[in-house]
Design a protein around this nucleic acid. Sequence first.
DNA 1: AGCACGCCGACT
DNA 2: GTCGGCGTGCTC
Length: 751
Amino acid sequence: MADRAAMNPLDAPTRVGEPSPEPAPIATVAVLAPLEKPLSYAIPPLLREQIQPGVRVVVPLGRRRALGVVLEVACGKDDGLRLLDEVLDAQPLLPPDLLNFLRRAAAYYHHPLGEVLRTALPAGLSSITTRVAILTERLYRPTPSSVVPPGTRQREVLAWLRERGEASLAEIAAQFPAPHAVLKRLVELEMLSVREAERRRDPFFAAPPPADARPTPSADQQRALELVLESLAARRFAPMLLHGVTGSGKTEVYLQAISATLGQGRQALVLVPEIALTPQLVARFRARFRDADQRVAVLHSGLSDGERYDAWRAIARGEISIVIGARSAIFAPLPDLGIIVVDEEHEAGYKQGEGWRYHARDLALLRAQRCAAVVILGSATPAMTSFHRARTGATAYLSLSERILGRPLPEVSLVDLSGRRLSGALAPELVEALAENLARREQSLLLLNRRGFAPFLLCRECGATFRCPNCEITLTYYQSHRHLRCHYCDYVQRPPQQCPDCGGTSLDPEGAGTERLEEELAAAFPGARIARMDRDTTRRKGAHQGLIEGMELGAIDILIGTQMVAKGHDFPGVTLVGVVGADASLNFPDFRSAERTFALLTQVAGRAGRGERPGRVLIQTYAPAHHALTCAARHDYLAFYEQEIAFRRDLGYPPFGHLINLVLSGNQPAQVESRAAELAAELDQVSAGVEVLGPAPCALARLRGRTRFQILLKAAARPPLHRLLAAVDAWRRKLPRTLNLAIDVDPLDML
DNA sequence: AGCACGCCGACT
DNA sequence: GTCGGCGTGCTC
């Protein structure tokens, strides 16, 4: 019988048959597949010159061809190795420090390097099948010739081109209608040369906003800037926390620090938690950096593959000075990165929740370390871990303690709801305050961190609620769509007329979401212009921006919304902020719930009184004595930190301990549970220096039809944790593919 | 992840 | 008797 492998054209010819007598160059390649380790390949003699670390290669992998990135080239025995097929880049696509950074990142997060590389590269560069269309265009350039062409049109076009230098066909066509024949003739006469070049799609063509004036920094801002400038001049890794109360002018510090970085000939990276929320920030950057050599690029999920590819290439060529983007922008290939700004560094949006669960802020610190850059972590409510680092001196501490122009922080009062029965979602105090604000024709903002009409539908007779068949949660009732929906898997069903359990006919929406609050307000204030901002109303492109503009123009009196309304907006007209359900986030089964609640309340309170008129804030709560509420009401970050840090210390939670969460999921509940128990028992055997907690069902014990158990690893130091992961790996290798084990290093939440 | 292999049910 | 379901193993 014939050898099947030998019949496969991919196989036999590429395999190195006999061991070479001489040591041959071997490439270590990170293949873009979830493999545990890089693979080694022999290098065909013809490709030896082109191979260097950082170039992409096509390699045989089993029966198929795969893309990989060369990590190292070394000499050794190449017997039994397969030959790599193709080298795709003439220059390293990933410069050494970027590649280095990604290798460190993969190790830290215990994630396969190939997958890390796939995450870091734009779609067009990370696959051999999906090629982005590389658009080319014709560029015409006058040759050094003084001959005068015969035709009038030819003379006109040539004169224009001699004036301008090189121009593309599109640009010429914009000046001279139907120029093709003329150009063709001029080329034939050798008065023009033509070349094909990669066309750059420029998604940044929008007209720049008017230039803004650079304000004189306040004393606080000046102090912060001096420290930044000093570190820049020394070209050293310098992490700093910029702790500035809401409205204190953190952005101005970013702008001036970046300006100094560009002055050094280096580039800047600005990370924002969610790019859709920050057109205002982008506009400020565009207004400040207007020179031809200060191009600003924005990376976000709305870019097409082609646009992303173009942006990536332009950044790598050094044509872009400032990149603004969401978490994945941390991988932007800026060649000489001098500063990374992480705006609102406490935001959970920096953490990738699926697949490779990286945290962009933490990666920013890692990357800056590799390229000796300054990192500014900016926040009014720093993460406990970030503030703790500043306390211990691991990062510098810069503080902006005053609002700009001496504007006061708003006055905050807590409305105690305990023991009270409200007729709707709003307490009379809040209704009254809204009425006053309307009478004064001032704007109000209401935070209710819950979408839909009601968080569940309840049977009055037997107390049954409606649950998602795929997830372990109740279905949210939407009056607008007349349906029940799951917020995790988007399962939808019609609300039944009768309770399926007892046949009862009184099924009532229980509790209130933003949709119901909007209805309640419309009834209470018939003349008011009310709008709602949550994931449901901002799904449509431009809807979010429309609401922001409505607020800026004063076309909205009351804006209701989820935490989306708390983030980063500067609405000078808002003088009243109401918080309808401050307790919901406190009851999350998670050690960070107080930290998150404090941050949310402080951020939303910070939306009040940013203009000329002072603001006030009313917070409805059932837990008025909780430190997250009392401290937020007093704008007292430090007091909150002191209380919270004591609790963290007692329990060994971050920043005093490090966590890794292992989540095992699968379709068969019994199998998941028993395997989780097995893993925990095995880890217990080798857990020196690590606490192994669990297994326990996740807070979301079922999600999209899969049962989930977690094992939490906790340790005072990282090395023993990473040692334990070696045991996890060994165990995982034996796991059937029907089960999935996710490793979450530094988990942000444990749902 | 792909892609093959191999072992079981329900079809012509 | 085959077609095809997905569990399992391997990829230099």
